[in-house]
């Protein structure tokens, strides 16, 4: 009996531990992998705490990675292989994302690469917003600040389920947008105001009959014949609208070396 109770207690402990770390593929997997050696120990500890808390709370796999070589791969593929090859995706987290900074000589840049269910969260817009958020600090070498801002942004994304638009490194608020669209609103409002009042004024004027359909005798129309001639043909060509400027961001998908699908994007610098 004692053995049985110990067995049950052991199962409960395992279940509790598994539930607390639902977002992690394994409690042993590091959440900040600084192969480029750009962070201090304190910075790694701080980032690890915040990413760990985020992963445990929201259950989405997430990891930070830096490196100085990509093993001859593209940054996207290197980051995707990192996720697949190191077991960052399993059934408990249903998906994983790596925010990767490559400092390889001549191939510097960052990528936000997702696999599994996280591909639906880190869409092209979200990756673009992250790029806008970290761009300035990345280019000026403030890597920790860039990673820290990125972690804050992703935490907010997981918490609210909604991506706050970022333009020029700043969060775009409703009031920013109102300021942006107010002139358009005023112009549209004035046009509609004038059109509606013109319609009201038209109702104040005479409306003389200009046709005689009421007096057309029923069944009196007799169509004796009809002939058709081709006259001419013209073709108009208009250029397709181009995609909006993404500030150098790239986005796409592909297959990892092990065949797993991934998607994501980032910028080079």
């Amino acid at each position: 009996m004692k053995r049985f109770l110990s067995f049950i207690a052991g199962l409960l402990i395992i279940a509790a531990v598994s539930f607390a770390g639902a977002g992690r593929a394994s409690a042993d997997l590091p959440l900040v992998v600084d192969r480029a050696g750009i962070f201090s120990e304190d910075e790694i500890a701080s980032l690890t705490d915040r990413v760990g808390s985020m992963v445990d709370t929201y259950g989405h796999g997430y990891v930070l990675l830096t490196d100085i070589k990509n093993d001859g791969k593209s940054k996207d593929l290197y980051a995707a292989d990192f996720l697949y090859d190191n077991g960052y995706w399993n059934e408990s987290n249903d998906g994983a994302t790596v925010f990767y900074l490559s400092l390889e000589e001549g191939n510097r840049g960052w990528r936000t690469i997702s696999i599994g269910a996280n591909e639906d969260i880190f869409t092209e817009d979200v990756c673009y917003y992250i790029d806008e958020l970290v761009d300035s600090n990345m280019r000026s070498g403030n890597y920790y600040q860039a990673f820290s801002d990125q972690v804050d942004y992703v935490e907010e994304l997981f918490r609210t389920g909604r991506a706050t638009p970022i333009e020029g490194g700043s969060r775009v608020t409703v009031s920013d947008k109102i300021g942006q669209y107010l002139p358009t609103g005023i112009i549209v409002g004035l046009v509609i105001g004038f059109v509606v009042v013109a319609g009201m004024k038209k109702g104040m004027r005479l409306n003389p009959e200009t046709a005689a359909a009421n007096y057309l005798l029923r069944d009196s129309f007799n169509l004796r014949g009809s002939r058709e001639y081709f006259l001419y043909r013209n073709v108009t060509r208009t250029e397709k609208p181009r995609d909006r400027d993404r500030g150098g961001s790239s986005f796409g998908g592909g297959s990892s070396s092990s065949g797993g699908h991934y998607s994501g994007g980032g910028r080079d610098f």
Partner: peptide, 9 residues
């Protein structure tokens, strides 16, 4: 389109 016909009002 050349049409030929009549009607009465």
């Amino acid at each position: 389109v050349q049409m030929d016909g009549s009607m009465r009002f």
